[in-house]
Computed example of a mutant assay.
Amino acid sequence: MSVPSILFGALPSLFFSQLFVTPKTPQTDCSGKTIIVTGGNTGLGKEAARHFVRLGAAKVILGCRSLSKGEEAKRDIEQSTRRTGVVEVWAIDLADYASVQAFARKAEGLERLDAVLENAGVNTQKFKLVDGIETNLQINVVSTFLLALLMIPKLRADGRKFNFTPTLVIVTSELHAFTAFKEHKEAHIFDTLNDEKKANMGGRYPISKLLEVFACRQIAKEHPVRQLGCIISLVNPGWCHSELARELITPVVKFVMNIMCRTTEVGSRTLVDATVSHGSEVHGQYLSDQKAKPVAPLVQGKGGAEIQMHVWQELAEKLEHIQPGILRNLDR
């Protein structure tokens, strides 16, 4: 599929959503729930955490790279909601596998865990390898799914213990539909993407979001809720004002953003909705504007299933290399 045809197909939906759809303020009761939000010190994550506290959550954990910024966010949330003793700040750096593993081990000690909202991510056009993997891919894909697989046993166990269905939500983007992803034809997709000489960094963030979609859908396809023990889904918050695109801001982009973008708070409503307002029917689904919607034609069209399997097999191999035996977490 060519880039012009991709844009022609995806842009009308994007414009309609941005200009004519306003997500509803979440009202789902979160009393007694413990919810983890990565990237919770700023932007969408912080505003989602604020909603969870407002809705009565017993504990909201902000997973942050910077503890000082996390504490600032905690104070702000406490002041605005007038609830104290709810928010905790935990360290996690998705650029460091050991940090992700330590975070997951700490979570095992929670009395109860209801949901994990994986919001942390990066959007950079500067090529840099972290542990041999390009930064967007390392943080948005590899570490994101490393954390997901590490958290599933805890979610499963607590769901069975307290008789509820936990949720694990990965924040993705409508931009997953804005890439031709020519690299999918390669025998070794990640190796190609990690080759600086072949890298088109202007399109790297959409590819990282597309890989998230492939991986989440394949996990859900192979592991139904009754076996996985939790619901795993994807959420698109829409184009929002946030720090994610700070490297890309130019006067022209800023002008367009002022017209098109949702506020951070409005965008966060979709994250909260995905985390606490749906059931097993959204397992493996892509949520946008607070409802399940079709994914990119490259994913659901002819040959999409084969690409999806290829992507997941390569990612699974990398996860198993980082932590041997981790794939068994999906089967127990």
Rank of each mutant, 00 (worst) to 15 (best):
Gly109Met: 04
Gln218Thr: 14
Glu78Thr: 06
Lys291Asp: 09
Val272Pro: 00
Lys59Met: 10
Val225Phe: 10
Ile152Cys: 12
Glu247Asn: 06
Cys30Lys: 10
Gly238Thr: 07
Thr84Asp: 10
Ile170Arg: 05
Leu113Asn: 12
Asp195Asn: 06
Leu147Tyr: 01
Gly304Tyr: 00
Asp76Ala: 13
Lys254Leu: 09
Ala91Cys: 14
Leu330Tyr: 08
Ile232Val: 12
Thr25Phe: 12
Phe16Lys: 06
Ser143His: 03
Val256Arg: 05
Thr165Met: 11
Tyr97Asn: 13
Ile232Pro: 01
Pro166Glu: 08
Ser31Pro: 10
Val235Leu: 03
Val252Leu: 11
Thr264Lys: 00
Ala57Val: 00
His223Phe: 15
Asn200Ser: 10
Ile326Glu: 05
Gln218Val: 15
Lys33Glu: 11
Glu306Lys: 11
Ala187Asp: 07
Glu281Tyr: 12
Val21Trp: 07
Arg83Thr: 05
Ala95Gly: 14
Ile61Cys: 00
Glu183Arg: 00
Glu212Phe: 07
Gly45Asp: 04
Ser280Met: 13
Ile92Met: 05
Ser268Pro: 11
Ile152Trp: 10
Ala73Gly: 01
Ile219Gly: 10
His188Ser: 04
His321Gly: 13
Thr25Met: 13
Ala91Arg: 11
Phe214Leu: 08
Glu108Thr: 09
Thr172Arg: 06
Glu183Ser: 08
Ile326Asn: 09
Ser277Glu: 15
Ala115His: 07
Val3Met: 12
Trp312Pro: 07
Pro297Ile: 03
Met309Phe: 09
Arg50Gly: 02
Glu108Gly: 15
Gly267Val: 01
Phe214Pro: 06
Ser208Phe: 00
Ala91Gly: 14
Glu111Asp: 13
Arg160Glu: 15
Asn200Asp: 12
Ile92Phe: 03
Leu11Val: 13
Gln290Met: 15
Lys161Leu: 15
Val253Lys: 03
Phe255Thr: 09
Phe15Pro: 04
Arg262Asp: 00
Glu108Trp: 06
Ser13Trp: 00
Ala115Gly: 12
Leu298Ser: 10
Phe178Lys: 06
Ile170Phe: 08
Phe16Cys: 12
Leu315Ile: 01
Gly39Leu: 01
Val37Asn: 04
Thr270Phe: 08
Val100Asn: 01
Gly39Pro: 03
Glu47Phe: 05
Leu146Lys: 05
Glu108Cys: 15
Phe164Trp: 10
Ile207Ser: 02
Val235Ala: 07
Phe20Gln: 01
Leu67Asp: 02
Val169Asn: 13
Ala177Ser: 08
Glu108Met: 13
Ile77Ser: 04
Gln285Asn: 15
Gly203Trp: 01
Ala177Gly: 06
Ile152Glu: 11
Lys59Asp: 08
His223Cys: 12
Val256Glu: 07
Phe145Leu: 04
Ala91Trp: 06
Gly159Ser: 14
His241Ala: 09
Gly301Ile: 05
Lys318Met: 10
Glu320Leu: 12
Val53Met: 02
Ser242His: 01
Ala58Asn: 06
Glu314Ala: 09
Leu234His: 09
Ala95Lys: 09
Cys216Glu: 12
Ser99Asp: 05
Gln138Glu: 14
His278Met: 14
Trp312Glu: 03
Leu44Ser: 03
Thr192Trp: 03
Leu11Asn: 05
Gly45Cys: 01
